[in-house]
Design a protein around this nucleic acid. Structure first.
Length: 165
DNA sequence: GCCAACGTTGGC
DNA sequence: GCCAACGTTGGC
């Protein structure tokens, strides 16, 4: 109750950072598809952000994790709010989770649409040394959430870095 | 409810 | 490939 009231107080759009390993799904894949479900999140905190907070129109920093180098590759936009991650129901799918079923789904996903690939990739190392990004979660030690909230001012700084010549 | 063991993430 | 730091699981 309290939580949903607070949600109504949120200014929109909200801003997020979402990690994907480019080996399995990169921003180039999203550019080609234009739009994709964001399946495979298997962490409760990340799920809660998607299920309870993400709204259509929210903007997303598309982060390439486990890449050389890791960093922000571009942006995307939430175009469908949370619904059950159906890959958990498919026995032969990598995302299969026997504890989840269509009557009582555990895992959720949103859909995102392609916005842009930054003209200039912004590596993690640069985020670390950029002034005014000190509280950005992705550069904090020990934080490995694959879906994390980002402050608007941080989003804008990073977008600028991505466009800097 | 504690906590050890195990599995995963993800930078390096 | 290594490994630190997490998160989850399951025995008790």
């Amino acid at each position: 109750m309290q939580q949903s009231f607070l949600n109504l107080m949120q200014p929109y759009p909200q801003y997020w950072l979402m990690k994907s390993e480019p080996n399995s799904f990169s921003i180039h894949d999203l550019e080609r598809l234009r739009k994709s479900s964001w399946d495979g999140v298997r962490n409760y905190q990340a799920r809660n952000f998607m299920r309870d907070q993400m709204r259509i129109g929210d903007l997303v920093l598309f982060y390439h994790s486990n890449a050389k180098p890791p960093g922000v590759a571009g942006t995307a936009r939430v175009c469908r709010e949370a619904y059950p991650d159906f890959t958990t129901f498919e026995k032969n799918h990598k995302g299969f989770d026997p504890k989840s079923n269509p009557e009582k789904p555990i895992w959720f996903m949103v859909d995102v649409e392609f916005v842009e690939i930054f003209p200039r990739f912004v590596p993690l190392e640069e985020l670390r040394r950029t002034k005014n990004l000190e509280t950005l979660l992705v550069i904090r030690k020990g934080i490995r959430l694959s879906v994390q909230p980002v402050e608007k001012k941080h989003f804008e700084i990073i977008k600028q870095l991505g466009h800097k010549l």
